[in-house]
Design a binder for these strands. Structure first.
Lengths: 340, 340
DNA sequence: CCAGACTCTGCAATCGATTGCAGAAATAAT
DNA sequence: ATTATTTCTGCAATCGATTGCAGAGTCTGG
């Protein structure tokens, strides 16, 4: 019951007095084996409690039917939506999905990549960590022609498919909206500039201010890691400025929340005294008081697109065709924090 | 560059005029090979861009150093905390973690289990889906002596390690607190009764009411799937009751939120008119207005414990020892929604 | 009745790494 | 100098499934 426990196609073959190859083909629904034979094999396999050993099959076929996903954190709503989108498409196409989170740690991201490669996943979908500035750990895949799709936090100088939202447009529209709501002196709490998404959001922000004929005050722009604590520090610094802001565009909802809570404690009213817009449409932003205006990103759809592109690449042999860059639209969601 | 791309220990061996077995041993830090030889092999391997093929190794060793995690949803704060705890311990012990979400769908849960088994994960950590009433799909593992650890939503009649929080105590203390805050007619929005956690929370609720000498009114107890929409329906039904409740114990924060939002729309004040306590301490419950009193669960620690138990079992051969049931304490977090 | 076409099944090599065992080489002991 | 011991290496089988190729068996048409 211990050596026995692993039942192989050979055991089935022996019991039925046929060849293992026939068993293998029958179990894979290869139409070349006789209907009758297959039915018999299937029944015997079931009776014997046969369970295929994917590793053996994968080793032989050099395919794992698995796609690896590397992302910073799974407990952000945006990211878990993307995962759901990926899984949706993957399962429909017979692929399994393995998820690992880097916690925005470069070393861990590297380890995960190596692990995925050693496990010979058929392709990977990646969103980079905040610390990531080099892409050696991913070059491995492109060298060996393993398809890679980036989403959201992408590496500009790596050639691969990319799925992004129009962060520039998002930043622009958020700021434009703040101006339309009466903002004159608008601050920005942004993320690390090595990540394109935060550069783009800031650029959209600056351009919108520029277009409105307002001055861009660099002392009103702060970049950090966008945690809850970072947000609190940032809002404190902004409010310590001799010329206080009357509106803030935050590069994520977490820092928007930090700002709201800090201002509430100080007795400063949002939106009456200060207007605020966040980014990402985290679930909490809808239920906070005041509810947070924000920029929505189609996470689920992005995941679907990423998986579709990846699977297409996996299936087509001549992979190094053209690389697509899909830019998905953002949505300005106006709630209470930005309208007087 | 295409056939070449897969470099094996045999390629290294050939190049160095030694045997593949020596290469294998060197790369695994087997002290039996000469220091000098090993250093040389390591260098050559690096130069040739060798990448181990885990599948081949796993096939041979019959171990994958991978643990599978099955849970309903990853975008609940509690679950993603558990995942982080699992990963923490797993990585420290050289295990990889594969996560799959069942979306509370029994069929998908079954597929995931089979997939994990076919991939020969070394052990699994499971929290059951809402629909799950049979455990055939998991019996596979116990039969083949693959360690299984349940957490949170556990199967009572499967013998395995279990990590749970004291849901009974949580329900009791939440209710006790509502009574202490002045609740006299206390309702309960609970989850599906096939899951032990929801039975326990309800039992704690009932007992607390009983101990306080209050009557238990079954029309004040509603069970559903605890989604946002379910919560809204439930609160509507409760408020349609001729004798309205003056306090509600919700089995999760999501339905507590539904209740708060619905009541706010109806102009009913929380906590002044109705007291509310939730369960799980989702991040949003702290930032909603009013902030939601709730029961905290030590998710990260539960994940750590689960991984520790699992890994111990994986490492020890004689697995069918005793099964532990770890009951972790809950924490009553008092916020605004339950104190007048 | 036979050549040719068609169906199905089996043989054996293969994927890439691991490991028990045997034996070569170097060293120590007698 | 010979034997015993220690230290490394190499041979070859193995893990479990897949698949190109060969060939057995059946069927069809002439």
């Amino acid at each position: 019951m211990d050596k026995q426990s692993e039942i192989t196609i050979h055991d089935i073959a022996r019991k039925m007095n046929i060849a293992a190859s026939t068993v293998s083909r029958a179990l894979n629904n290869n139409p070349i084996v006789n209907q009758e034979t297959r039915r018999l094999i299937e029944r015997t396999a079931r009776e014997m409690g046969y369970r295929p050993n994917t590793m053996a099959a994968n080793l032989r076929t050099r395919r794992t039917n698995t796609i690896g996903v590397i992302l910073p954190l799974i407990n952000r709503y945006f990211f878990s939506s993307v995962i759901s989108g990926i899984e949706d498409i993957a399962y429909k196409n017979g692929f399994a999905v393995t998820i690992s989170q880097s916690n925005d740690n470069f070393e861990k991201e590297t380890k995960i990549a190596q692990n995925f490669y050693s496990n010979r996943v058929d392709g990977i979908i990646v969103s980079l960590g905040m610390e990531t500035k080099s892409f050696e750990h991913l070059r491995l895949f492109s060298e060996k022609k393993v398809p890679v799709v980036f989403f959201d936090r992408v590496a500009d100088d790596v050639s691969a498919h990319k799925i992004v939202v129009d962060d520039y447009q998002g930043g622009y529209r958020a700021t434009e909206h703040l101006i339309a709501s009466g903002g004159k002196r608008i601050a920005h709490i942004g993320g690390p500039l090595n990540l394109n998404i935060y550069r783009d959001r800031r650029d959209g922000f600056k351009t919108a201010i520029h277009h409105a004929g307002l001055p861009v005050d660099e002392s009103m722009i702060i970049h950090n890691s966008l945690t809850r604590a970072d947000g609190t520090n940032a809002i404190k610094r902004l409010m310590a400025n001799p010329k206080k802001p009357d509106a803030i565009f935050c590069a994520n909802d977490t820092t928007a929340l930090s700002a709201i809570i800090h201002l509430r404690e100080k007795g400063i009213k949002v939106p009456n005294d200060i207007l605020i817009v966040g980014f990402s449409n985290e679930p909490f932003s809808e239920v906070v008081t005041p509810s947070i205006s924000t920029i929505g990103q189609p996470g689920f759809e992005m995941g679907q697109k990423a998986a579709e592109l990846l699977i297409t690449d996996i299936k087509s042999k001549n992979a190094d065709d053209l690389f697509q860059k899909l830019v998905m639209p953002t949505e300005l969601i106006i709630r209470d924090s930005s309208v007087r």
